[in-house]
Write a protein that binds this DNA or RNA. Structure first.
Lengths: 219, 219
DNA sequence: AGCTCAAAGCTACTGTTGTTAGCCATGGCC
DNA sequence: GGCCATGGCTAACAACAGTAGCTTTGAGCT
């Protein structure tokens, strides 16, 4: 019985590919073992357990997404850069739905966690897009979150077949890009201070109480 | 041994509550059975299997979300309606993360599936918001998808602790609402035809081989 | 060449979870 | 008071994640 010549990177790459095929939720150690030509327990020589595998797949996906978005924005600015970044991001999610799903809900264990490093790189790639707009410095974080929310939301909904009525999905995505572009271009001189409104307190019951403030300084 | 007096609705409600507490991925039949005071196999007298339970939880969540968003927009218009709908939606997702997660990825089996019915109601609630903006009729679907993507993306990312750096998350959400509002207000006379760009094809490497292509006509 | 030994594979096993089969008690209804 | 659909139960199976402990490989050293 010859050795399979595996190493952690090969296992993770195969796991990511398998997740893309069968869906992240359906990824199992048994299937992965069969895929790489080995019995299930042998996988544990390369990854500590399934959660570790998931985290490594997530780190890989974030790094690849950062590369794709970063490459797409090279030499572009303004709306061109925004559209290129958005399309590159969505294309990545649609062609690699399983590994991207692995990134949802993972939390880096610290600033040196590959998940944090690659996640930061992805954010930096999106930040480059914002340089083409005339934003006040204290609006950058908000704009970054808005970008990420919009494109993440669209890509994951489409990936999950969430758009089931008739209008063309690609047209809708271009429309979203335009919406964000117009919103960002009309932002410049705005004040972002929270306006005092009576319904703010009423609308935020604060049931959760899990404030995400001040965790790891990612950006 | 007295009867527990269960019925499908009670099982689903308990399952939704449990999912909110422990997370949708960690929802198990055993835990749910213990929660409702019954042995695991007895649950199968009320739901056909776990997937059926998930679908029923999803339908419940969509109905509740539709109610919340619909109620929030009553008597409001324009930016007020948009902000109220957005806050109601995010509050629902944050206070009921487990049951909302159940809605991601479910596909209705047909137009009479409760998932489709409640999903449509939620979309109708968001459509009411769009009446306050001066949109061309053929932009309505695109605008609806943009709304849903943005708020869904923000709420799910926040629910998954996806925002880990320092800026205040509530401020970011208000900022997103403003961004969408400005984008919608400047939409009125735009053309939505896709502009031809050379990078559309180049940005899709198709590495996976199980392409998402041809689901919707790409060109 | 032959030895060494850590790394990488294996079989056998445990505990957990979803699910089915088949049995028995409950309690509303005539 | 008896009927019987309903809802509960125990016992079992299959799939899965993970552990223990053994064997084999093969690269590096003498």
């Amino acid at each position: 019985m010859p050795r399979a010549g595996l190493d952690p990177a090969a296992v993770v790459a195969a796991g990511a590919a398998l997740a893309d095929e069968v869906g992240f939720a359906a990824l199992s150690m048994g299937q992965l073992a069969e895929r790489v030509g080995v019995r299930t327990p042998s996988l544990y020589k390369h990854v500590v357990n399934q959660e570790d595998l998931n985290r490594r797949i997530a780190a890989l996906a974030l790094a690849e997404a950062a590369d794709a978005v970063g490459a797409a924005t090279q030499g572009r600015a303004g709306r061109d850069a925004l559209a290129a970044a958005a399309r590159a991001f969505r294309d990545f999610v649609l062609t690699h739905p399983g590994r991207y799903a692995a990134t949802i809900g993972v939390e880096p264990t610290g600033p040196d966690d590959p998940i944090a490093v690659s996640g930061s790189r992805l954010l930096v790639a999106f930040t480059a897009v914002l340089r083409g707009y005339d934003l006040a410095p204290h609006d950058l974080d908000h704009a970054l979150r808005a970008l990420r929310s919009s494109f993440h939301g669209f890509a994951t909904l489409q990936s999950a077949h969430g758009f089931q009525w008739s209008a063309d999905v690609d047209d809708s995505f271009e429309w979203l890009i335009d919406l964000v572009d117009r919103g960002l271009r009309t932002t410049a001189s705005r004040q972002t201070g929270r306006r005092p409104g009576p319904d703010r307190a009423a609308a935020a019951p604060g049931a959760g109480g899990h404030g995400a403030r001040a965790r790891t300084p990612l950006a």
